[in-house]
Design a protein around this nucleic acid. Sequence first.
DNA 1: AAAATAGTGTCTCTTAGACACTATTCC
DNA 2: GGAATAGTGTCTAAGAGACACTATTTT
Lengths: 254, 254
Amino acid sequence: MPTPSSSSTKNSCNSLDFERPSTTVDVVMFAVRDGRLHVLLVKRADTPGEPFPGQWALPGGYIDVLKDEDLEACALRKLKEKTGVVSPYLEQLGSWGSKTRDPRGWHSTHAYFALLPTASVITPVSGANASEADWIPIVGKGVSHKLAFDHQTILEAAVARLRNKVEYTSLPAFLLPETFTLSELQTAFETVLGRELDKSSFRKRVEDAELVVALKNKFREGSNRPAQIYKLRSKTAPVFFPRAIGDSKSRAAK
Amino acid sequence: MPTPSSSSTKNSCNSLDFERPSTTVDVVMFAVRDGRLHVLLVKRADTPGEPFPGQWALPGGYIDVLKDEDLEACALRKLKEKTGVVSPYLEQLGSWGSKTRDPRGWHSTHAYFALLPTASVITPVSGANASEADWIPIVGKGVSHKLAFDHQTILEAAVARLRNKVEYTSLPAFLLPETFTLSELQTAFETVLGRELDKSSFRKRVEDAELVVALKNKFREGSNRPAQIYKLRSKTAPVFFPRAIGDSKSRAAK
DNA sequence: AAAATAGTGTCTCTTAGACACTATTCC
DNA sequence: GGAATAGTGTCTAAGAGACACTATTTT
């Protein structure tokens, strides 16, 4: 077991002198487009020498020890670079690290997942050195492209986590614009869950959880009865419902 | 933003040539001793130059790129080194990384948490270079010692996660020996939860979840009616209950 | 028989789902 | 009035808690 204070000399990236794994941060960014859940992917540069050239991957990359104060700041930086969004819902997903997941050697990545409001979905920014970025629809457990590294695994974990948490939290609310109607909120839940919900019990649930606040005299007009417009009571913290939304159906594991 | 393929030359730990953070793995090991929840801590070496000399810390350390296939293998290695236990319940907790959490520079750690069966708690192994190790009781949100690095934060996250998951999973079962009675199982839940449970509803819950299997003609004898002895149906996977154990009481956040 | 713990049954309360119902707008 | 969506009320079923009850052992 290597100890940082040993004084064998091999190479020195800083005060520690033994072979160390490299560290990255990847972000799974979700948004709803055309009533379907999408994830933002980037196409890797087609440079020879780069691993997985030209393949789709999660946006992410190496931590910049000068720019990034901490892991979350690094994730937020990558988010802003790709989408321009400054403060979306962001949650740590997990980490993956092994000898083999990157052909360049021992790598570990800290994965985050983010929920972006519909409004911000318009422009996939093809940033500085990212050759291409696009919103790809979620199909089944993940995406129908083959992804670089172990990004398929990470994406599947993110989709599973999101679907699981929808059962007992208000996460889909972060996929909507600032203001919305209850029907729109319900549709967001249904989009993520992949099944329809009963209107009456959904509304009771939302009401009891005090998730939203009605905006006085604000209504969504259409060719029918206008709908009350709401906003979230808390723009950042999700609400935890006391029971799963499927109740009698058992909650999925992990 | 640094790119791995840039060819400025600064130093070279492997093929990547820019300043990189260091990576560790820490493990929060829980066990029940004398009816109370404990965590295994180690005392850091009292060597000058080492950060936090002589202070209590979570067991863990640098990834060994030669020995460790992946993050989980690294966590299991550290677990075995400290306790001798080979396959406990092990779950990824999260990761913490920042410029400031280690005085030696940008560090990130992958934290795991483990539940150890009572049987394995007897011997805190003071391994090779670990100067001292001991089981410390959980008090409130964490432990009453001051811990090295941000280990207090990590420990508190582990305690919170454990307490939260007890509400809807069978995690405390992994704190018991192979076989146990339902009363012992209930006590394990109560120890972690920090509150008493109703016997009847607890047993219904366990029964409905098909968590345990009765051992034919095995009974725990005492100065009273003997109790049926059970074992877990699955020694590794926790069971997820359809509802929180507190039900009407709301589940804690995160 | 008493003590002690194991194990069960009954009642009530809460909440989710099903589903029918009413309400309000535009055409 | 009809179409369309918003919003509400009523009934039922399932599961959790409270708590009293029975069961089986040792002393």
